[in-house]
Write a protein that binds this DNA or RNA. Structure first.
Lengths: 239, 239
DNA sequence: ACAAAAGTGTTTGTCATACACCCATGA
DNA sequence: TCATGGGTGTATGACAAACACTTTTGT
């Protein structure tokens, strides 16, 4: 076990030198009628001051990364109780030209309309269509690409799309959401048949009259039913 | 952008306090005739001295995490040129009772028989059947579980299973490998039909005579062909 | 009456699954 | 000759994909 002993020596030896700054960066997804969007902010410190960036912050001693991500999101946007998932850890030596920093990327899904952005000044923050996002600092574009790929896979196998919609939504909204996530058109009848066959939505006796004259029925996602099906039947959500 | 300014102040304020030790831990998978295995070592330092553990080490200032993972694997086993993938970052405050440490888990796939374990003393390291692994220190069992789940998904959609086999292998070996990864029996004819339909193996004029009297044909994975298919036809490897 | 979106089933093709016998060889 | 693993094809069912017309209602 000599090798492990060396590692141990390294631990002692490098105890100070090898400590690094750990950051958390958040890719915040939203959905606004038609398009999948991400929330970006204008960085107001050097280096790269004035450039578009993901929101981020640093890990504190008394919290784990999930908690740091929640805190960062809450601090910078006022939002809490949000779906978040760890994505990947980025560690290139020169990724941040200011200082060696390791960044753990998270992505978040939020219902754009249900939240007020109290703490954020919207002149220095903006929603961008994911397909038209500007160039971002450091490796943030790479993070965004990975987040989109992950969201695509997740949305096909877990009921996380609903996190991006209002509590009550129409079938058309749900379809448009999936079309924007997958970046391809879906067949209306096949989509509705598939969703209905999953049997996790409740159709309300209530219509959204804002889009068409006829109006379209509203649905809600029945989370309890979904979880019960998963537990009892090993149900697999699959779009 | 007041909030971001606060974050900036925190950066300056916490520049020293908030630095943390970053470790890399490796789940090393191997396949030995019948079973999927992981390589574990006996820890020889406190805390938890003598307990089974993943191999690990600390990130250095002049390398990124991928390089650290490669280095740790090389240092502790003598192996290089190995398939590795970042898995997840573990950060609970008290995960390591000795000192606050964040650990980035990687998993590696190795061909057990093609490598000599020069630097490792096998009395303090051992291959364990993944289904019979002992209790591990810290959150290492959790890491192993996540690695198995990831390997399962990856092996179904990317040709990484071959990393666990000798260069030349029989259909039966390949099938047994997948059975051990997926932890379920597969139908022999269906499996062979599916593999053949993928059209990325080359059947050699050479038989493995060590198992049966009849002998069974050896195959090799044609990586160039696979990559060409992916690039030209958007081919999807799918078991 | 017409424009605009909502709502609704069937057919077809593809892919996954289930399944059983003969072959080659060494002992 | 027999025991052992190797090798091979077809039939069925399930699910995915393609596809067009009627309904409702406000203007």
């Amino acid at each position: 076990m000599e090798a492990a002993k060396d590692a141990n020596l390294q631990l002692n030896y490098y105890q100070k030198e090898d400590q690094v700054l750990l950051a958390v960066d958040c890719i915040i997804f939203g959905f606004d009628k038609e398009d999948l969007k991400i929330l970006l902010v204008k960085r107001n410190l050097e280096p790269e001051k004035g450039k578009w960036s993901l929101i981020g912050g640093f890990l504190k001693k008394n919290e784990n990364l999930d908690q740091a991500a929640v805190r960062v999101l809450k601090t910078l946007t006022g939002l809490s109780d949000i779906y978040m998932e760890q994505l990947h850890t980025y560690s290139n030596v020169d990724r941040d030209p200011g200082q060696r920093t390791i960044s753990v990327a998270y992505y978040a899904l939020i219902d754009v309309n249900a939240h007020r952005f109290g703490d954020i000044q919207m002149d220095s923050a903006n929603w961008f269509d994911v397909k038209k996002a500007p160039h971002l600092i450091f490796d943030h574009n790479e993070m965004v690409q990975k987040a989109i790929a992950r969201l695509r896979r997740r949305a096909l196998t877990k009921p996380i799309g609903f996190e991006l919609l209002p509590e009550k939504f129409t079938m058309r909204q749900l379809q448009t959401l999936y079309e924007s996530i997958l970046d391809k058109k879906l067949d209306k009848r096949n989509f509705i048949n598939k969703i209905n066959s999953l049997d996790v939505l409740v159709k309300l006796n209530e219509k959204d009259m804002t889009v068409s004259r006829k109006g379209s029925y509203l649905y809600v996602f029945d989370k309890e039913k979904y979880e019960k099906k998963v537990e009892e039947d090993g149900f697999n959500f699959k779009i």
